[in-house]
């Protein structure tokens, strides 16, 4: 009862919602802010990729046989014309990384979004109703989480063939269970709170209790988890594409860029390194932002995720 006790007389501090308070704390977190800026810049670049391509005249699939390939037939290093150098076919690597970002970010966001909706609904139902519903849904979650996901992905793709839709589906299928498990646990504890009991005593319907009383209190952990799952999905997409099971060339994605570059790391360092660094920067930014949001939403109480950034 140390700091909690001190915060009690907050009557004079005026009109701020829990979200506004969290935003106020997030704004002072420099690491999180820098990460957010990195993500915004990346998304902007990805969205504007066709404009940039039109501006410098390098389409994602244009091969520059004169300027983009050395006389020995090797890729050209980074320079004034090709900022990230070129690839083995003389294409502009910078433009291809940007177009790859479109695919990778899209897959990450869409797959995680689908997973969140499914995960929240299933977790909420399991936690709220308990009993048989919970037993069935929880075992389902266990089964999904214990799937050897790479083998599952290989099997699934070998049936339907590699495509953007298949990639999104595979990632979403694997991700929802993690969200559902967290949501279920949170629902179990929130439904015992007195304010839920108060709603029950007023005669509120199950749906009203779940969506008006419980759901808003789940959003904080779900938002944090989503910011941590997006980079995981991006890495997953890259893994699949790298193995030739995800996005198929010539459409660039970060995974197949890395896959193409693997034979060239001795002669053209940039070919592997620069896309890999972009991927690293993106996932790092998402992870650090997720940490920052978690600290902002929930500055001192229970931690539901294991990773924790040390503060001074």
């Amino acid at each position: 009862m140390t700091i909690t006790e001190l915060r009690v007389p907050a009557a004079q501090v005026t009109g701020r919602s829990p979200w506004q308070l969290a935003w106020g704390r997030l704004r002072t977190d420099r690491v999180a802010l820098a990460s957010a800026i990195v993500i915004v810049v990346l998304v902007t670049l990805a969205v504007c990729a066709p404009l940039i391509a039109a501006w410098n005249g390098h389409g994602p699939d244009d091969q520059f046989r004169d300027t983009g390939i050395t006389p020995e037939g090797l890729p050209v290093p980074p320079g004034g014309e090709f900022w990230f150098g070129t690839d083995r076919l003389g294409r502009d690597l910078f433009i291809r990384v940007l177009f790859g970002a479109r695919v990778s970010l899209l897959v990450g966001v869409v797959a995680t979004g689908m997973a969140s909706i499914v995960g929240v609904v299933i977790g909420l139902l399991a936690g709220f109703y308990g009993g048989v519903v919970d037993v069935i849904l929880s075992r389902l979650i266990d089964v999904v989480l214990s799937f050897p996901y790479l083998i599952f992905a290989i099997a699934a793709v070998s049936i339907v063939g590699p495509s953007l839709a298949a990639t999104v589906f595979v990632i979403a299928f694997y991700s929802w269970a993690a969200i559902a498990r967290i949501v279920r646990g949170q629902t179990l504890s929130i439904k015992e709170r007195e304010y839920v009991e108060a709603a029950r005593s007023l005669g509120a319907s199950d749906g009203r209790i779940m969506f008006i009383d419980i759901l808003p209190n789940l959003l904080a952990p779900v938002i944090v988890l989503v910011t941590l799952l997006i980079p995981a999905a991006i890495v997953f997409e890259s893994t699949l594409s790298y193995l030739g099971l995800g996005i198929t060339p010539p459409t660039p994605s970060w995974g197949n860029l890395l896959s193409e570059a693997q034979g060239f790391y001795r002669v053209a360092w940039w070919y592997l390194t620069l896309p890999a660094l972009t991927l690293l920067l993106t996932t790092l930014a998402f992870n650090l932002l997720g940490d920052g949001i978690r600290d902002a939403i929930d500055p001192r109480t229970e931690r539901i995720f294991s990773r924790r950034r040390k503060k001074k």
Binding site: P18, R193, E194, Y195, E197, A198, D213, P216, L219
Partner: peptide, 11 residues
């Protein structure tokens, strides 16, 4: 209810 903190939905 007893708990003036727990009985009101914080959100």
């Amino acid at each position: 209810f007893q708990d003036p903190y727990g009985s009101l939905n914080p959100r």
